[in-house]
Design a protein around this nucleic acid. Structure first.
Lengths: 208, 208
DNA sequence: CCATGAAGCGGAGACTGCCTCCTTCTTACT
DNA sequence: AGTAAGAAGGAGGCAGTCTCCGCTTCATGG
């Protein structure tokens, strides 16, 4: 990001100022009203025309991506911290999933665009998503190697599950249920471990 | 639904005809384009004005609820069948969850309104949802009684999880992953059952 | 310090979707 | 056939998204 080469004219200062201001306002707005609030309303609150908003961020996803970037870095830092400080691979995976969960819950409604980003690949959010899937895979692989995680499970599935859990949470909050119910369901499943019953050998076939 | 009492005027036949026709068209439309397709487009395809559509079904949810009713009955029948034929409570719960999953996947995008129905209670879908939560609870309780299911888990959580899984599946399909990945994750969790390792007694503190 | 033109700004407005009146037409009943 | 309940239809209000284009502002060269 230095001053570009050769005779390029310097970027106008008002542009940068606007961009920053829009980001501040959008952060506030999305926090208050969730990510589906009106784009024009954001522009208005920022005191700019819709055209300006769209020139800076050509879509809601682009705005979101820019907004998330700061948090991306936090999450990345968290990853490094976990990898350095937590030696037990099971605990590491757990903590990473927890961090992911927090990231995904930054704004109300965030799981939806993240999910489409994960498939469509065209969203500005896609790259970030993909990166975190990979990280999840790393933690998962370590846990699997140590026999702490089911070897069938794959990183992408875990990431999707985290997304899905966060998505569902919107509903869970109204309930008296602890918000952790779904997280722990994802961790241990609903099925009780097959106890060695008196009648031996009914080892269930969970995965045909 | 007999001819109403006393001097009530008979319902106009064109009304009933329209209603039926709208339902047929909507079924087709939602199947093709998912439940977020334009209401006006449905009206147009059915050859009626938007006013007519909205008089019959005052909201998208109402239309959806009417559409789902036929399938509700199928699902209810399935419930009865399972309860009669499947004696193993674990298998019964599994099969019920499978049936639920199919129901929830009837149209693309269905999980979303179902989730809000589960919390807001004001949606026409709410009643149906609540009923299925209760049924899930029944199956779950039986499985728990037999030691086949984790006693911590609650019916509502399982229902929500099914919803969340279906929601996430939209993404999973693009992947090479079997669509069952998330279902089995919900069943068994990601965590490997604590094996008795050579170094005993390192029972980790997973939940601070 | 002013002239200049490229870059950026703003908002009118095209378009689409939701939903509501209000007028016109259809139907059941007498 | 005549009548009125009530159903149908669609114009149109409202709210969003996003684009285009004339106007303004800023960095630069004289």
């Amino acid at each position: 990001m230095g001053e570009a080469a050769s005779g390029e004219r310097r970027q106008r200062t008002d542009k940068q100022r606007n961009r920053t201001h829009i980001l501040e306002v959008a952060e506030e707005f999305f926090t208050e009203r969730g990510i589906t609030g009106s784009m024009d309303a954001i522009a208005k609150r920022a005191g700019v025309g819709p055209g300006t908003l769209y020139r800076h961020f050509p879509s809601r996803e682009a705005l979101l991506a820019a907004l998330l970037q700061a948090r991306d870095e936090e999450l990345e830092a968290r990853r490094v911290a976990i990898q350095r400080e937590v030696t037990d691979s099971r605990a590491a995976l757990t903590q990473w999933l927890q961090a992911l969960d927090q990231w995904v819950t930054a704004f109300d409604g965030l799981p939806e665009p993240l999910r489409v980003a994960l498939t469509e690949g065209t969203s500005p959010l896609a790259l970030t998503c993909q990166g975190f899937v990979t990280t999840t895979e790393d933690f998962l692989r370590a846990a699997q190697r140590d026999g702490h995680a089911n070897p069938q499970v794959r990183g992408r599935d875990l990431f999707l599950s985290t997304l899905a859990t966060a998505w569902a949470r919107g509903a869970a909050l109204a309930d008296e249920s602890s918000p952790d119910a779904l997280v722990s369901l994802m961790r241990t499943g609903w099925e009780a471990p097959a106890r060695r019953t008196t009648s031996a050998g009914d080892e269930g076939p969970p995965a045909p």
